[in-house]
């Protein structure tokens, strides 16, 4: 039975696509057969973050219309041969497909692949409904900012209303130094507000931008970096392994911060 997981957030720009790319890569490296589905029609980017943009020939639209075979539309990753991408159409809008068609195409992919990660567009309109309809599980991505947390809460409500019960949270772009100074909500704060199980935390890191410049997920290009370890840990937790959370605050435990904390009481 394959796992069909939607990566969604409500708010845009919080890291859904980056997380989809890295988790997919990490799962594939661990020997899983993984298909990434870009559900962001009209604003596709998963191909770009994976560095596969020049290999896109057909998209989900052609596959659904029967203009090509599904296997022809699936772009194989250049590094992991268990990893494929079903690109979204770039010159069509979100109304180009409906939830039934999406469910059908994902159902086809599920015959061959163990994990299907669906990268949802921002928003809660038709594109979002296309992305969540085939899914059995959801990963909610939120940064520790009020707008992102509020939108995440709205999306959690919509997922529950659509019968998706396994909903887990990824807190992205944590800045430990700001949390330390009480200038940013910490993971515990976000968890307390959203009240859903946590599956992982990812620190804010400049290297994520470098990785996107290169079209190389950070788990591939910089496998020893902290964000890469964070993604690998999430992939392992998806597999059911118990992996302790990264201690992002450890690096903040220097002398100056200890003195600052003394003042804070």
């Amino acid at each position: 039975m394959s796992r069909i997981i939607v990566v969604t957030s409500g708010k845009g720009g919080v890291g859904k696509t980056t997380i989809t790319a890295n988790l997919g890569y990490s799962l594939a490296r661990n020997g899983r057969k993984v298909a990434l589905v870009d559900a962001d029609f009209g604003l596709r980017n998963l191909d770009l973050l994976m560095g596969l943009e020049s290999r896109v020939v057909y998209t989900a639209i052609e596959a659904m219309a029967g203009e090509c075979r599904l296997e022809q539309a699936l772009v194989k990753d250049k590094r992991q041969h268990h990893l494929v991408l079903l690109p979204a159409a770039q010159h069509r809008n979100k109304e180009a497909i409906d939830p039934t068609q999406m469910k059908e195409v994902v159902g086809q992919i599920a015959k061959t692949y163990e994990y299907i990660l669906i990268d949802s567009p921002a928003g809660i309109e038709i594109g979002f409904r296309n992305a969540i309809t085939p899914a059995k599980e959801a990963l909610i991505v939120s940064t520790p900012e009020v707008a992102s947390v509020r939108d995440a809460d709205r999306v959690i409500g919509l997922l529950e209303a659509n019968g998706i019960e396994k909903i887990r949270l990824i807190v992205n772009r944590i800045k430990p130094d700001m949390v330390q100074m009480n200038e940013m909500m910490g993971v515990d704060d976000v968890l307390d507000v959203l009240s859903i199980p946590l599956v992982g935390i990812v620190p804010d890191d400049k290297r994520m931008i470098v990785a996107s410049n290169r079209g190389e997920p950070v788990v591939c290009g910089l496998p020893d970096s902290i964000p890469a370890i964070a993604f690998d840990n999430i992939a392992r937790r998806l597999e059911g392994e118990k992996v302790p959370l990264l201690d992002l605050m450890a690096a903040q435990d220097n002398l100056i911060n200890r003195i600052r904390r003394l003042f804070q009481g």
């Binding site: 509020r150 100074m181 009480n182 940013m184 909500m185 704060d189 507000v193």
Partner: peptide, 23 residues
């Protein structure tokens, strides 16, 4: 950072209030 009302707790307080209404 000595300020008793830090923006972290303010963010959480405001979120809890608005989410109660949203939900």
């Amino acid at each position: 950072w000595v300020s008793p009302v830090n923006s972290r707790s303010e963010a959480k307080r405001r979120l809890k209030l608005i989410l109660a209404h949203d939900r």
